[in-house]
């Protein structure tokens, strides 16, 4: 079936079976391979995308359910979250990096709705994303660092105003 999709702000068309998960639509049909296959069962979070701004497991998201929704992927994340990407890079957060598309998407979603997450908030938001290399402590520290930076940045804007 033909679907018109909005992916990273662009309208694209694909011709796939209705039950095709967005994971494979992105990877096979739209050449957006930043979204990773890790388990196919929604357990690991490597395939995390945004659907209308909300976190979704793309391996559990049939294309037929998102045709009228805005999809966003890791490839576009740095546009709206440059500081997060910068800190991730500078702090050597990734090791093999394979799960980090999903980790970054989950971290950004957390920071979007909570500008000063506690460790418990981070646990709640990030526990769905497995990292076999075990980079969790750096992910946690990076989220705190970005939140602290954003707080300072916002603070100075307010001061200026």
């Amino acid at each position: 079936m033909r679907y018109e999709l909005s992916v990273n702000g662009q309208t694209v068309a694909v011709d796939v079976a209705p039950d095709t998960p967005m994971l494979w639509v992105l990877r096979d049909h739209l050449d957006l391979t930043g979204t990773k296959y890790g388990c196919g069962g929604g357990y690991c979070g490597a395939c995390t995308i945004y659907v209308d701004g909300n976190i979704a497991r793309s391996c559990q998201t049939p294309v037929s359910t998102v045709a009228d929704k805005a999809i966003s992927t890791i490839e576009a994340l740095h546009e709206n979250h440059p500081k997060l990407v910068e800190v991730w890079e500078a702090n050597n957060v990734p090791q093999c990096g394979y799960c980090h598309s999903g980790q970054l998407m989950a971290a950004a979603a957390l920071l979007d709705r909570n500008d000063s997450p506690t460790d418990a908030d981070i646990n709640a938001a990030m526990t769905g994303n497995i990292c076999r290399c075990g980079t969790y402590t750096r992910i946690r520290a990076a989220i705190h660092e970005v939140a602290a930076y954003d707080a300072t940045a916002t603070g100075s804007e307010e001061d200026a105003a």
Binding site: G34, H78, V85, G97
Partner: peptide, 15 residues
């Protein structure tokens, strides 16, 4: 800083 971090954080790491 690791040379591949930039690609990885932008979904461009090639596996």
């Amino acid at each position: 800083v690791h040379v591949d971090n930039g690609d990885i954080a932008r979904g461009k790491g090639n596996y």
